[in-house]
Nucleic acid binder design. Structure first.
Lengths: 345, 345
DNA sequence: CGTGCGCACGAGAGCGCTCTCACCATGCTG
DNA sequence: CAGCATGGTGAGAGCGCTCTCGTGCGCACG
């Protein structure tokens, strides 16, 4: 735990290079309009002194921070006890880094914490925010919009339907669900059930919608509600078997739910996929590949989602647009999904 | 994507409250030495104007940022495709938040990226750093030490043996391994094998040491090297069965490895735990509970590790110490592990 | 009643940077 | 050859805050 040494200032570099502060500043920020001789001289001085600009001083005048907040709400941190979180973060990080932006991570801890996040964002410490808050009743999005911080959401916010200015990046949950169910139908299955996710999240609702798109005449008996967890999957599967013992296919809202379903199916003596075909969602790798049998599932490109969120945000901040007004204002993006065939369906 | 509005300054608050800037500053920073009447008046003005201090301006003069960098090296981000990362981060976040510090996340992408991180840390943007870099040959720790930023490491760095000033937080990998092996021995097992983790990481090396502590006379035939992945676990288990078909217990370096081992054992017709007892490490919940049979494993309190890292760092920054010099300089901490008995051993 | 002390407050100087603007060479046009 | 763009450079103001000092006041003391 060493202590920081005093760092050289612009002034020091200017003195050493025999130019003015202004010129050094110009060189440090690209060097346009400075003769090559001087640029060279300043660069040398910078190297020799090990000069690094003081970001605080810079922000004070530019009102830019080159920093973006990533807000993850508490309920999500549980969901993110899977690679989802890490991957998305990685995509975000890559994109931000490529544009020299820092990533300030804000994890909320319970609802009281929302105020703190709101205050922080309103405090103008960051240029924008990437927010994961997929619950319908979450006050956070509203709070953030009010804070006046440019924001891109991860996953469609529940209330976004009526607001045109909300920008989000999402997977094509509905389309992916349709693909899954169509695949099951293509296998000749006719009694295709669906185990939902937590329906207060748009992803779960959208997947259910996709299922219904294909199974227009599915009775409610074939739909069981769960919560994205293996335990929930078990419960729902048992329920389904009771209501409809001759079910021959299950589309689970995510891979973890599918794991629970698989376990119950096996315990009931049914073979997968011979008796009951099973499809998950996410392609959560350590899980989907390890199940018995390996899980057919709908893959979403999670890292790309993160990257895209960051890209949209930065574009909105005019970091990217070469000329003012050239880039259209960013609008939401829905990424395609792909069905990954393994052995469970 | 709304745009930020101009924010009120100290000056504005001062004018409204009819006091000087200095007084407002005093109130905002605790209010010592200001008459209650004025404190009240200033507070009111702050509320009415929705004043939030400009952190950049403040940092410029205080040279404090109330921000801490969390550095995660690339190889780790893969390992952290498990709840490890999220949990640790959560612990860190909680502790930092409690002390009004921000969390700046730095994920490195390949070795070239180290320089960037070094530059950032040397740039004095943050008051300290929490670093995850558990590989023996990683240049990052050295780089960071040279940057002169107070740092606490997550996991014992490979080269820390000879350096007294390195502060880290780690689990008692060695002790946990000993417990696991002793438990297996206590079950009457005599041919207890060990599947190692990636031995360029101290955690893997320490667990191997713990195994050896108990199995002082274990032949090399009972040790197979793997890499913390299920696939590695499978490979190693096959190897072990070949070399020692009558093995009756396996201590795997982590839960994922154990999953691979379980699969091979089952495929070979052996029953767990009847024929072969298996113990993992981590208690990675979605995994350990879902295996067949549920996995006996060594649990480490991951969130607490994160919290502790942050606490040590902040203490080192004198955020905590009520009086100068009262708190001893922070030293490394090794957290205990606990054996969680399920059904595999 | 004068002196001294302590306390509450304000004035003002920076922190390190960016950015506007004025200045001074040039080089070109009329 | 005067006049005027043009482009490179420096001087200086100011971003919003903290913090040191100096000032004025009330009070206890001699």
């Amino acid at each position: 735990m060493t202590d920081t040494a005093p760092r050289p200032t612009l002034e020091a570099v200017a003195a050493r290079a025999g130019v003015s502060r202004a010129t050094v500043s110009r060189v440090v920020n690209g060097g346009d309009g400075v003769r090559d001789v001087l640029v060279e001289r300043v660069r040398k001085a910078v190297d020799e002194l090990g000069y690094v600009p003081n970001q605080a001083a810079r922000s004070l005048v530019t009102r830019r921070h080159d920093a973006v907040a990533v807000v993850v709400a508490e309920p999500e941190t549980r969901v993110f006890a899977d690679p989802f979180f890490a991957l998305q973060l990685r995509g975000i990080s890559k994109e931000l880094t490529a544009h020299d932006n820092q990533l300030v991570l804000l994890l909320t801890e319970g609802r009281d914490d929302h105020a703190r996040v709101g205050r922080y964002l309103a405090g103008g410490h960051v240029d924008g925010a990437l927010v994961f808050s997929l619950h319908l009743d979450d006050p956070l999005p509203e709070l953030i919009q009010r804070a006046g911080v440019p924001t891109v959401f991860g996953g469609r916010p529940g209330w976004s339907g009526d607001r045109r200015d909300v920008v989000y990046v999402d997977s094509d949950n509905r389309g992916g669900a349709r693909d899954a169910v169509r695949h099951l139908a293509g296998l000749g299955r006719t009694r295709i059930a669906h185990i939902t996710g937590a329906l207060d999240q748009t992803s779960a609702a959208d997947r259910l919608d996709g299922y219904r798109d294909v199974m227009v005449d599915a009775g409610p008996g074939l739909i069981a509600e769960a919560d994205f967890t293996p335990a929930g999957g078990e419960r729902a599967m048992r329920e389904l078997l009771e209501r409809c013992p001759d079910v021959d296919a299950v589309f689970a809202a995510n891979d973890l739910t599918a794991v629970g379903a698989l376990r119950v199916l096996r315990a009931s003596g049914r073979r997968v996929p011979d008796d009951v075909a099973v499809i998950g969602f996410d392609d959560m790798l350590p899980v989907a590949e390890q199940t018995d049998p390996p899980l057919t599932t709908v893959r979403q490109d999670i890292e790309e989602m993160g990257r895209l969120m960051a890209r949209l945000l930065l574009r909105g901040l005019d970091r990217d647009a070469p000329r003012e007004g050239v880039g259209a204002p960013p609008s939401s993006v829905v990424l395609p999904t792909t069905l990954v065939r393994r052995e469970s369906a």
